[in-house]
């Protein structure tokens, strides 16, 4: 007999003969484990997957003041930041930078307001005054001053649609803009979320 009985190779185990009891025990053990797996994975998966159905953030959908009308020059696209209330998971933030816009003032208080987000893949477009073109530095999308996609022969323009226009209004001598984000990479202008 060796010092530790379990090292005996030829040991007979009593329950070896008792096959039905053994397989019942096996089935019961597997069943218990399945119960454990189910009880544990429900809360864990529910928590992890919460963003699929829960609201994890929110940006003000109200009009925000961009500035007094005197601030905007005619026919000269200028970049501004829109500020508004937002909620990001656990944070409620007042007057956060919601996003950037290009403001193009026409004559007689007519405006066009574009999101700086390129509708191709979401980089920020620049205004190139010398070419009177909005140009995206990432993949070369281009738009004219009215936000339309430009067609230059022999040159690819990856933008699927024109620049996204934002709703604006004038109140008490101020320009107000409603900032929204749109799904990139598709032809239609569709609000995110």
């Amino acid at each position: 007999m060796s010092r530790f009985p379990h090292e005996e190779k030829s040991q007979k185990t009593p329950e070896d003969g008792d096959l039905s009891r053994r397989s019942a025990l096996k089935a019961l053990t597997v069943g218990t484990n399945v119960a454990i797996g189910a009880l544990l994975s429900a809360p864990v998966l529910g928590t992890i997957a919460f963003p699929l159905w829960g609201k994890t953030g929110e940006q003000s959908a109200e009009y925000s003041v961009v500035g007094p009308l005197t601030k905007f020059d005619e026919n000269k696209p200028t970049k501004f930041t829109v500020v508004g209330d937002s909620r990001d998971a656990w944070q409620t933030i007042r007057r956060k930078n919601l996003g950037a816009i290009w403001v193009v003032r026409g004559t007689n208080d007519s405006f066009q307001v574009f999101s700086t987000v390129c509708p191709h893949l979401g980089c920020a477009v620049n205004w190139e005054a010398s070419r009177t073109t909005f140009h995206c530095p990432c993949h070369g999308s281009e738009f004219d001053q009215t936000g339309r996609r430009t067609e230059t022969s022999g040159k690819q323009n990856p933008a699927p649609r024109g620049l996204d226009e934002l709703e604006w209004k004038i109140e008490n001598g101020n320009l107000l803009v409603r900032y929204q984000r749109f799904v990139t990479g598709i032809e239609d202008k569709k609000v995110v979320g």
Partner: peptide, 9 residues
């Protein structure tokens, strides 16, 4: 308080 079943985890 806000996440589904977060209080359970």
């Amino acid at each position: 308080t806000q996440v589904t079943w977060g209080y359970l985890v």
